[in-house]
């Protein structure tokens, strides 16, 4: 069923926002995001919906998803459609090829702001990596099982993992690549989704 939260602005306001380039997400995109968040935890989408935020997207090369607080929406909807909105609120991630990729700020929001520790039976999957692996990960590289200092017992293929250094600082997110048993000698890998080195690598 469609979530009405995302289309609560009036028609006139909606038209203005669309002209500014900021569009409320549609059902399909909502499904992609839900599927993406399910890789972190199946409960996350429900927890996420309690927050006072709306999801919007802008159309660039990819569809950039923004998490916009209700307070911000009330101002944006009054902007006359001159110019184009490039960014607002929290950059949550992007959709490409019908798949949702969580951004670094989205990961920060989930890790730091959602206060998931208060939720019963809910734990984010975290992996602590050693010093050399930290540097390697901050260059955007893939890590191997031997680089892990501490990791959850059960790791499934395509699980999105929060990667921490030995000082317990979040350094990025990755996903588990588990080879099929039929491939000889292949081992579990943590592939980089996004990390803090990204800000330097992009050169802005």
């Amino acid at each position: 069923m469609r979530d009405n939260r995302f289309i609560r602005v009036g028609n006139e306001d909606r038209r203005r926002m669309v002209q500014l380039g900021l569009l409320p997400i549609n059902r399909l995109q909502s499904d992609y995001i839900k599927t993406g968040l399910d890789h972190i935890s199946s409960d996350l989408w429900n927890i996420f919906q309690r927050e006072p935020y709306n999801l919007y997207y802008t159309r660039n090369k990819t569809e950039d998803i923004f998490l916009v607080h209700h307070e911000r929406v009330s101002v944006i909807k009054h902007i006359n459609p001159k110019g184009k909105i490039e960014h607002t609120g929290i950059y949550f991630g992007f959709i490409r090829n019908n798949e949702f990729y969580l951004g670094l700020e989205g990961a920060e929001f989930i890790y730091f702001d959602l206060k998931l520790n208060k939720e019963k039976n809910f734990q984010l999957k975290k992996i602590v990596v050693n010093r050399a692996a930290e540097k390697s990960f901050l260059y955007g590289n893939t890590l191997h099982h031997s680089d892990f200092v501490n990791s959850p017992q059960q790791l499934n293929r395509k699980d999105v993992i929060f990667v921490l250094n030995t000082r317990n600082q979040l350094i990025g997110i990755g996903y588990i690549y588990k080879p099929y048993k039929s491939v000889p000698g292949a081992k579990l890998e943590l592939r980089n989704l996004v990390d803090y080195g990204y800000y330097i690598r992009r050169g802005y």
Binding site: K82, E86, H87, T88, Y91, Y199
Partner: peptide, 19 residues
């Protein structure tokens, strides 16, 4: 560069307008 600095510094109350 504006957007990346806002993102890096966890600024959430800002809307960037190309205008």
């Amino acid at each position: 560069s504006l957007i990346y600095n806002l993102r890096r510094c966890a600024v959430r109350n800002t809307t960037v307008l190309n205008f």
